[in-house]
Design a binder for these strands. Structure first.
Length: 484
RNA sequence: GGCCCUAUCGUCUAUCGGCUAGGACAUAGCCUUCUCAAGGCUAGAAGCGCGGUUCGACCCCGCGUAGGGUCACCA
């Protein structure tokens, strides 16, 4: 229907005020997908114009987050490009240059008021239940700027702006959205409202992918583009991600967590990409599990949602398991062994070959291994169990019966010539034959509980295999004694 | 409060005027299984309300309602 846009350039422009949360990453993801799909350019720009809110180390942390999920940028703080540098605090001269253009046109002036005076205006507006508009207090003669007051933009024409957002369609807002906002603060740094426009122009950004909170200030941006005589870029506005309660936009103030926490919890990068993309986007079919490449292929701005989507840990976990299943057995095992090692459990050779699949079945993210271990779920392999008599009995059977079966099985095990139970298959056949005659549950249940000490555990043959002859017999005999 | 936006199962969503409203997560039940998990099957579960346009509205329009965003020398 419409031809592929040419020479697309998108950017992600976080401010280094701490960590990135899922909302920020999704905005970055959409910008990245848009660029990658169109063979365009994706720029990372750091918007550090608020020195008071800046948090040490966040630039590195943000980059780490993006790198974790593979959102690579073509130009950025650590990737030199034609518009170096990519950190706003190092581009002050540029904002000044653009500010001077506006001053020359009579479209910018110094703010003569003190902060207290403005605060008074604001309070008054609030009391009158009216939106605060600075321009209503604009001095008759515009004060000249000496670089120490805030520099304000002068709205020259109060009109209704209409623009097309690639996600939301046609949008418009009247003059009440226009105001004399601050371009450059008294500390010499530009505000976001001005800096991002200057940078987007300078860097040739064609598509501004941003959160929905910027819709209301778009007329302000358009009035600046107009004053500068520059054609505005395309706006691509993403819907908000709501907290799990569905009530409010997810934000740091509401306890949104550090995106890197998901890495710590053991989610796969591909899951995060897949999940985040689908929170507010759906290509239309019934397929939900997408690889990164498939996502780039399927991404379409027309299919991006406008209403907020609620975050769901349940669905994230499900999706992560789906992506985990796409891993090879070798990759799975390596991950599990690695995670266990951190917990002080060393698995080697056959042990890991046997144990890893059991663990894999029971987790939906690598971090589940931690709770698995913490809750003693793997104790059946490492510690001799304590018994509660009743648990050794299968359904309606009785103690004597359980004991009889256990003793018989013990006999089979003792007779086994294979000291290491390397061929559990042979033993398995013998026990199975017996169990089939006696009722499988009646035999296998007490055996499994005797070996594991738990109501839930892997099957008895796996246990026999891993425990070895000595330990298996020791546990079985302990259980038999308990049944006396 | 002004302005802007949004509205399909509990949740994420499909439908681009023809719907017996589809899928996924979650929930419940059943099957399989030595238990749990996994897997398979099944079930319940939705078009915010009122008008209008139309042969026909979940889809288009208006009003109402609800929710979100925004109104900083924050981004």
């Amino acid at each position: 229907m419409k031809e592929k846009p040419q020479n697309i350039t998108t950017r992600f422009a976080p401010s280094p005020t701490g960590f990135l949360h899922v909302g920020g990453v999704r905005t970055a993801l959409y910008a990245w997908l848009l660029a990658r799909k169109n063979n365009g350019k994706f720029i990372l720009r750091i918007e550090d114009t608020d020195k008071a809110r800046e948090v040490e180390g966040s630039i590195e942390h943000i980059q780490k987050s993006l790198k974790w999920v593979g959102l690579n940028w073509d130009e950025g703080p650590d990737a030199p490009g034609p518009h170096d540098p990519y950190i706003q605090s190092q581009r002050l001269h540029l904002y000044k240059k653009f500010a001077e253009k506006l001053i020359a046109k009579g479209l910018a002036y110094a703010d003569p008021y003190t902060e207290e005076e403005i605060e008074k205006f604001r309070k008054q507006a609030e009391a009158d239940k009216k939106p605060f508009l600075y321009r209503e207090h604009r001095p008759e003669t515009l004060p000249e700027w000496d670089g120490h007051q805030p520099l304000r933009f002068k709205v020259s024409e109060l009109k209704t702006y209409t623009w097309t957002d690639l996600v939301w369609g046609e949008l418009s807002a009247g003059p009440e959205a226009l105001d004399d906002f601050i371009l450059i603060k008294s500390d010499g740094y530009p505000t976001y409202n001005f800096a991002h426009i200057v940078d987007d122009i300078d860097m040739g950004v064609t598509h501004v992918v941003r959160g929905q909170e910027f819709i209301s200030s778009t007329p302000k941006f358009l009035s600046v583009y107009e004053a500068l005589g520059v054609q505005p870029p395309h706006f691509v506005t993403t819907p908000p991600i709501m907290g799990a309660d569905g009530k409010r936009k997810l934000g740091k103030r509401d306890g949104a967590k550090d995106f890197m926490d998901y890495e710590k919890e053991g989610y796969l990068p591909d899951t995060m990409i897949n999940f985040l993309a689908f929170l507010g986007f759906n290509p239309g079919g019934e397929k939900e599990i997408f690889t990164r490449e498939e996502l780039i292929e399927a991404f379409d701005l027309n299919k991006v949602q406008r209403s907020g989507a609620q975050w769901s840990d349940d669905k994230l976990d499900w999706m992560n398991k789906e992506h985990m299943k796409m891993l090879s057995e070798k990759e799975r095992n390596e991950k599990i062994v690695e995670r266990l090692k951190i917990l002080g459990i060393d698995l080697e050779g056959v042990m890991s070959e046997k144990l890893c699949p059991i663990i894999f079945d029971r987790i939906s993210k690598w971090g589940d291994i931690d709770t698995f271990v913490a809750e003693g779920e793997l104790d059946y392999f490492f510690n001799a169990p304590e018994y509660e008599k009743e648990k050794l009995i299968w359904k309606d059977s009785n103690l004597a019966e359980a004991k009889k079966h256990l003793e018989y099985v013990t006999e089979i095990l003792e007779k086994s010539s294979d000291k290491n139970f390397d061929s559990v298959e042979k033993i398995k056949t013998l026990i199975f034959d017996y169990a089939t005659l006696q009722g499988r549950g009646n035999v296998l249940w007490p055996l499994r509980v005797a070996l594991s000490g738990k109501e839930k555990s892997p099957d008895p043959f796996t246990l026999i295999y891993i425990l070895g002859k000595m330990e298996t017999l020791a546990r079985a005999e302990k259980a038999i004694k308990k049944l006396d």
